[in-house]
């Protein structure tokens, strides 16, 4: 028996919206500790990792671990039927479920929708992501980072991110010319302006902006985003989801030949 009831169903809708351009089908692993999901894009350049802790759910029960293979496109269609204020409940009482039930309830419990989504059996191609002590960590407004990526992607497909003790510099070079945006440490009390840099070792890494622009579809999940980098390592972009868990994106760097 597996049942997970999320009070703010809109969070689940936002998560699916944030990943639907990146991955086509995912395995959600349910266990006693909560839900986790890891999936790569078709080019195996980017990876999304979702962790939702059981204590962030209104009700949560998972008698034994199960894997739920879902088509993101079909999941999206079902979630379109959930209101932003609805609670969302996922449920199955089979051990090897062939489908997953969804219940959407409005606040007054006066409207209850029930859907059943057929499940897929997907071969899990999981990667072992080591816990990394990143040498450069940037916490900043997710809206601001999203804006920087959008603006720079009009000049080049590739951005170089260079950190130093007191600032982070995003640089682009394209056919029309070049540009850079430098953001300094800023302890402002205004969220949108605050920038926290923890730079143990400066890094200079290059990434494809189109993936960063896809990651930034997660801005609605958190007002802040953290960029985690170490030399010769994939970038990890993390959106913490209040009281529930986190949505992380990993992106392999581009290495100048």
């Amino acid at each position: 028996m597996f049942e997970a009831k999320l009070q703010q169903g809109v969070i689940f809708k936002k998560i699916v919206d944030a990943i639907k351009d990146l991955v086509k089908s995912v395995n959600i692993d349910a266990s006693t500790s909560g839900l986790s999901m890891q999936a790569m894009d078709s080019a195996h350049v980017a990876l999304v990792s979702l962790k939702l802790n059981e204590n962030g759910f209104k009700d949560y029960r998972c008698d034994r671990p199960i894997t739920l293979g879902l088509s993101i496109e079909n999941l999206s269609k079902i979630l379109k039927c959930a209101g932003n204020d609805d609670t969302i409940t996922l449920q199955t009482d089979e051990e090897e479920p062939s489908s997953l039930k969804f219940f959407f309830e409005n606040q007054q419990a006066s409207k209850i929708s029930e859907f059943s989504l057929n499940l897929m059996s997907l071969d899990s191609e999981s990667l072992g992501i080591p816990d990394t002590d990143y040498s450069s960590v940037i916490q900043m407004s997710s809206a601001e980072f999203s804006r920087i990526c959008k603006e720079l992607s009009s000049i080049s497909e590739t951005v170089e991110i260079e950190t130093s003790k007191e600032s982070v510099k995003f640089s682009v070079q394209g056919d029309i010319g070049a540009g850079s945006i430098t953001v300094k440490n800023n302890q402002s009390d205004k969220d949108v302006d605050r920038v926290d840099l923890q730079i143990d070792q400066p890094v200079k890494l290059t990434f494809a902006l189109r993936y960063l622009n896809m990651f930034n579809k997660a801005v609605s999940l958190s007002s802040t985003v953290s960029l985690n980098m170490s030399e010769e390592n994939p970038l990890m972009v993390e959106y913490k989801i209040d009281d529930l868990g986190s949505l992380r994106f990993y992106l392999a760097p581009k290495i100048s030949d």
Binding site: M40, A43, H44, V45, A46, L47, E125, S126, L127, G128, I129, P130, T158, T206, A208, N233, P234, Y250, A252, P253, K254, I255, S256, D257
Partner: peptide, 14 residues
Amino acid sequence: IELQKKLREFFPKI
């Protein structure tokens, strides 16, 4: 030119 690396060059398959 910059070559786009793949994640499996950094993370082992499990």
